[in-house]
């Protein structure tokens, strides 16, 4: 029990018109980076809001760090960065951070010390310029994002929940965020983040859960998920690009379930029961010169497309981020 940072058991949430989340169960071990993946509208934000007890589930129970999430004290050990970000515009940066820290129960005597440390680290307080006395609205968008990020981590939470953290970040802040996530993990903290950008998830996450239409599609360690879905994907590289004849071969649904042309190579998912050797022979028979023919582990993106299907794509899925 206590080695889980988060456990969700059979949680459902219905709104008048639709089901946002349906009997969702998942477990996040302490000290991992966990990705909650899914297209827009899959129920990620609803799930996160239920984890934080901002909205109550219709059924099911949620345990955070071994305590029910209705226990107000456990929320102080959480850091949350919502998808829709914003701060009090007219307040001075330091005052906003003090307020956010106080709400998480950081002792007032300790606040300024911590705030200074973070401001220096995020280069909002340097020898030349101290932004902490500035009003939030006077800061650039990138700097406001940094302030918000400090607010999330100021109380040194054990569990950090980030909703779509990379959306709207400039490259420098995205890098800073990624570095911080890695560092949190090294310090034994747990990070849960939602994203619809599979590339980010693949690079950062130890484990993932893919949800679509409010239901869990799959979950587990990234390595295990990939291994389970391996063996049916081939990377095919051709000299001089794809000829119409090769195109015809890849269009044979008895052999190939899906082919995704990445320009420099084609990621081919074999049809059920098809043999890679057969594919190799058919491609050679067209007279094409093969540069690369390799059985590969599928990307999370591929797995996602495979398991969620085209409907997920239509609902706003975007794998290329």
């Amino acid at each position: 029990m206590t080695d889980l940072a988060l456990e969700i058991r059979g949680v459902s949430k219905r709104y008048a018109a639709h089901v946002a989340v349906e009997s969702l169960s998942l477990a996040v071990p302490k000290g991992t980076v966990y990705g909650l993946l899914g297209p827009n509208g899959a129920g990620k934000t609803t799930t996160i809001r239920m984890i934080l007890n901002i909205i109550a589930p219709d059924t099911g129970a949620i345990t955070l760090l071994g305590r029910p999430n209705t226990d107000a004290a456990v929320l102080d050990r959480l850091g949350y960065l919502p998808e829709e970000r914003g701060l009090y515009k007219k307040m001075a940066v330091r005052d906003v951070l003090r307020f956010l820290g106080e709400l998480k129960g950081v002792p007032r005597g300790e606040l300024d010390h911590r705030i200074d440390g973070w401001l220096e680290r995020m280069s909002l307080r340097t020898a030349e310029k101290d932004w902490s006395k500035q009003k939030v609205e006077e800061l650039s968008r990138g700097m406001q994002q940094k302030v918000q990020f400090i607010g999330t981590l100021l109380h040194d939470p054990e569990l950090v929940i980030l909703d779509e953290p990379f959306s709207g970040l400039d490259p420098i802040n995205a890098q800073a965020l990624k570095d911080t996530v890695v560092e949190l993990r090294q310090r034994g903290k747990t990070v849960i983040f939602s994203t619809h950008l599979m590339d980010n998830a693949e690079r950062l996450c130890d484990a993932v859960c893919i949800i679509a239409k409010g239901q869990k599609v799959l979950d587990g360690a990234v390595a295990a998920v990939k291994a389970e879905n391996a063996g049916r994907t081939v990377a095919l590289g051709l000299e001089g690009g794809m000829s119409p004849a090769v195109h015809a071969v890849l269009g044979d649904r008895a052999l190939v379930a899906r082919a995704d042309d990445h320009n420099r190579f084609v990621e081919v998912e074999l049809a059920a029961g098809a043999d890679p050797q057969q594919l190799l022979q058919r491609v050679l028979a067209t007279g094409a010169r093969i540069e690369r023919f390799e059985r590969v582990q599928p990307s999370l993106h591929q797995i996602f497309l495979q398991r969620v299907g085209a409907t997920g794509v239509e609902e706003g899925m975007s794998g290329h981020g």
Binding site: L52, I54, L75, E84, K89, L100, L103, T152
Partner: peptide
């Protein structure tokens, strides 16, 4: 209204009722 439009409300209600 300000807390709502600036979206700061969500951060706050994750910390206090």
């Amino acid at each position: 209204l300000e807390e709502k439009t600036t979206r700061v409300a969500e951060v706050i209600v994750a910390s206090v009722k």
